[in-house]
Amino acid sequence: MDDPLKRAIAPRKNVRSVLLVALALVVLAVLPQLADMFEQPAMVSLATRIIILAIAAASLNLALGYCGLVSFGHAAWYGIGGYVVGILYNHYVSGDPLFGLPLGTDQMLITLPVAILVSGLFAAVFGALSLRTSGVQFIMITLAFAQMIFFFFVALKAYGGDDGLIVRRRNSLPLIDTRDGATFYWICLVIAITWFALLRRIVSSRFGAVLSGVRQSERRMAAIGISTYRYKLVVFVISGMGAGLAGALMANHARFVSPDMLHWTQSGEFMIMVILGGAGTLLGPAAGAAVLILLESQLAAFTEHWQVILGPLLVLMILFTRGGLSGLWKLLRGGLNG
């Protein structure tokens, strides 16, 4: 704690929020049992989806919320992660060589790290280009590059093109049966907790302090001798890796990958999750993912045209609540008190 930067951003201990997080973790851990108890078997699958999307949203939040990089293309890294799982599985089943080598596999211990690496690699290449711009141009360029990658997968007839790839069986792990829904849920939960713990370390490190500095004033950071481009690139790559991890898990969960995963509306949804939950907060994106997915599934049960309701809801939320759900909470409390 000698580093003054580090001391300045050391998190204040708050007993109540620690207890709240602990309680949430306990509920999440026994969720499959609860689902059994209330005879809601679909709940486990829904919760798995939320957890996976929470990983992606939290990764985007690292770039968007902490560093102020408004990336409108995170679906690309998410989709690439998914396709890594799909393509490796495809080669595992057919036995065809990949790049001339027998590389196909269905081992989760291999596919997940490879997915993370490959998404990180792509994020590095496109991030290096995109980060030459800032502001609105950055938003447009990340969107356009993601669209380019989308078209690439649409044209990739060898791996299904438009129709996507079916992953007939989930990737396997030694000693654990991943085909069981509850088991897979727990795997995702453990990975998510690990990822969030890692993110927490990142944002409370010196590196994280620089990220906040770049968001608040990039010129000031540059003036104190920090090469901001490098920091932005690194955070963009980490963020892309997280999205890739989420994509790989989603490919396992849905047992299907298609260009839809890379569609630009998916990028938009990730951004909504981040804003809904509160950008620049550790657990906000997870809450945002949960609220958005639950809202979507509720509205979808109510009408086929649920977007006609969700759209205006989003507009109202942006216009009248600053900072998503917590803003709404403050607005409501303010309304009640005064």
Binding site: L64, G135, G268, I275, Q307, L310, G311, L314, V315, I318
Partner: peptide, 27 residues
């Protein structure tokens, strides 16, 4: 209402508008 906001808010609010207009046109 978005003039004074940052680009992120503008993107998300107008994204909401797209969802609305597309679905309304479908209906």
């Amino acid at each position: 209402r978005l003039y004074a906001r940052d680009h992120l808010d503008q993107v998300l609010a107008t994204f909401g508008l797209i969802l609305f207009f597309n679905q309304l046109t479908t209906i």
